[in-house]
Amino acid sequence: MLLEINNLVKVFNKNIRANDGISLKVDEGEVFGLLGPNGAGKTTLVNQIIGLAMPTSGSITINGIDVVSKPDYARQTCSFQAQTQVPIAGLTAIQAIELVGLIRGGDNIQVRERSRQLIDSLEIGEWANKMGATLSGGVRRIVAFCMAAVIPGRIVILDEPTNDIDPVRRRLLWHEIRSLADTGSTVLLVTHNVLEAERAVDRLTIIDKGKVVGTGTAADLKDQDKNHMRLELILEPGMIFHKVPKFLEQTITSKRRIISRINEKKVTNALNWSQSLKEQGMIEEFFLGPTTLEDAYVRMVGRLDVLEMPDGDIKND
């Protein structure tokens, strides 16, 4: 195993257990997802791997080497894109990418070529010579990705790399993340975007409230949802549901979306019910389809993100 984390505990201010006994193993060459809602402890976990935070207890090894006692080894082995923006206000995008490449030990020619290639494939050429301070949040985050990928470590840690990025470049970014793994790096990807992660990662761990609630491939995690379908309703603006029929299991809301699981035997009921809601003008649209990783995630975490309505807002009849 390249990266092995064992029973990791991180306590802040004596009683906040940001990581509460996390164990996971990441293999060479895989794209490994670390999913969880905001505040689940994902960033705390990667900060301990890279040596920015000190575990309260537990162990982290890279290549069998204990990086809690040897944080320098972690920094040699891992390249890191932090969740916060990179400090490149006075540097141009290309200067920042090339300098980090050189700092990470690349030679001039190699760094220049690789920087150019990343800038081209992520289509940020028009900003390459612009100062960091003038870049939009999304472009700045792509530059931060390039800085982590220019001379990638054996492990590339990306903390929410797609935040603020437009859909087109997001797709290009996922492609680059995949090619990092294809060229031999292991990618540890932190995200709360479940839908994107499902397509991008080989295996993943879902963490919530500092604990691992599920690990495996997306298919493994969805396995418990077999014999079930996913029903998603998009509410008309201003509409609120307080009660839903019994055949809707584990219903959650996220802004205008209502997402639920239904047993395959109840498909006809669900279709009829949804159709009538549409006719009454309660919902804009509905989708019935196979379960996704998002459904497994909802089953394990009980919510999608911090913007949803509190639990219990929606009750079954």
Partner: peptide, 13 residues
């Protein structure tokens, strides 16, 4: 601004 979180993650003393 989180400058040091970034700088301290680079492989430099």
């Amino acid at each position: 601004e989180g400058t040091f979180d970034y700088m301290w993650s680079l492989p430099i003393p």
